[in-house]
Design a protein around this nucleic acid. Sequence first.
RNA 1: GGUCCGUUCGUCUAGUCAGGUCAGGACGCCAGGUUUUCAUCCUGGUAACACGGGUUCGAAUCCCGUACGGACUACCA
Length: 509
Amino acid sequence: MSNNDVRVRFAPSPTGPLHIGGVRTALYNYLFAKKNGGKLILRIEDTDQNRFVPGAEQYIIDSFKWCGIEFDEGATAGGDYGPYKQSERKNYYREYAIKLIKSGHAYYAFDTPEELNKVRSVYEAEKRTFIYNADERKRLKNALTLTDEETKALLSNGEPYVIRFKMPENENVIMDDLIRGRIEVNSSVLDDKILFKSDGMPTYHLANIVDDHLMKISHVIRGEEWLPSLPLHVLLYDAFKWEKPKFAHLPLILKPDGNGKLSKRDGDRLGFPVFPLQWTDPKTGSVSSGFREDGYIAKAFVNMLALLGWNPGDDREIFSMYELVEEFTIERVGKSGSKFDPQKAAWFNHKYLQKEKNNELAEMLLPIAESNGVLVEKDKMSRVIGIVKERANFVKDIWNQLDFFFVRPQEYDSKAVNKRWKHDSYDQMNELKDILYNISSFKSEHMEEVVKTWIENKEYGMGMIMNAFRLLIVGALRGPHLFDIIAILGKDETLKRMDQGLNKLGRKE
RNA sequence: GGUCCGUUCGUCUAGUCAGGUCAGGACGCCAGGUUUUCAUCCUGGUAACACGGGUUCGAAUCCCGUACGGACUACCA
């Protein structure tokens, strides 16, 4: 197979917001496709009519757009192998199911879910495992136990039926996984899975094989939760006499603490998002946070996700999407699950935040400033951001690093006052005020030189003066280089703040 | 319960396929440095081959077993 034949797909079910595990699966598919000059297809697997959630499909599309994952074919991009929504392919599946019946690989079954549940609970009570397999199907209501006439009669009566796969009795199914290698399972432990439901829709198993074949999918890269059904899928390909795609089953993304699959609950409990975008459940109205809304930069999010389960084999950690495409290989995907680490995610975001242009960050900060009741010029915001952004992990953190540029101290941190506002401070700050009032240039370096010379000449303590000064300007002991701050505030504002502070703090006895 | 998959610092991981440097890097944490503050930044430190056998001169690496964890076990995907 030449590289041009590489066709992979991401096939979500629109039953809710897309979990980051799903995003990562899509990302790896995307990287694999691009790396190999192939195509990525988005197929919507909406064969379960009961679980349909309005808005979920659009959410999925919006999420990938935000991440920068582009599809070559699919529900939105179009293509020659459509339709790309399984609900619109409904008519294909019955035909293929019947093909399997004719070739002896499948059969009609008439057991109702209630009947089967009953059998299952009887088995459970006896501590036995119920498997609808070669043994059990002899005792159940299906085309194998019924006569042809009885089956035909039931069908023509409109009796509800399903079509089940006729699992071979004792066959070693040998599978090959790109990540895990050779896997072998005996078919006797597998069951006669339903391929076609009584509502006229196929199950995942049938639809996925038929569509992957029809869409000429070359590699199936999906989550590890599908590994147990791989033998069925392999057998299905064999039954159809179709060429199999190559398979790769990705490890899971685990919760940061303890064990198990990362879930929405973990995010709520530990305070981080598990979905790329914020999602409002249409039924309950409950809102789940998203990486985007929490201030993550899309590129940082993608970079972090790519490294969760894959690595380039060396020490590099920062990758653009382009670089990921260049470097990505399935062979370097790990076998074991990865715990999501919110702290490392924040670190990635910090790295990307530093690369972000100041005026673009300013654009994002202006609304935040406004919601704090402050109207700011974009240019000034941009300038200030340049000074403080290295201190922040997220855009929303930046405001807390620069609010004092725009808002005079409302109060003075009492601890700081206790520690740094001493008896001499009042007179010293008055002296400093005079110096700044008369200074020739309000440039940062110049002021620093003048003020430091004054401190040395007077033999004042540098820490004493500068901290008291900071207290007057900022209201607390925080923020960047103080002379940079007052240079931006300007002489008027600086002197006003000094007056205000001197008034409020007064002379300490 | 059954089937399958997995297991290297607290976390993400390199090293495993071709057995042979004090098991390397990053996040976190701790310490020191820079600094007028808080951060950033820089330097250093902490810390792991799940366990038990076997093969071998030599095992994180190969083999077997055990333990632990996970996924799956629907007319859901």
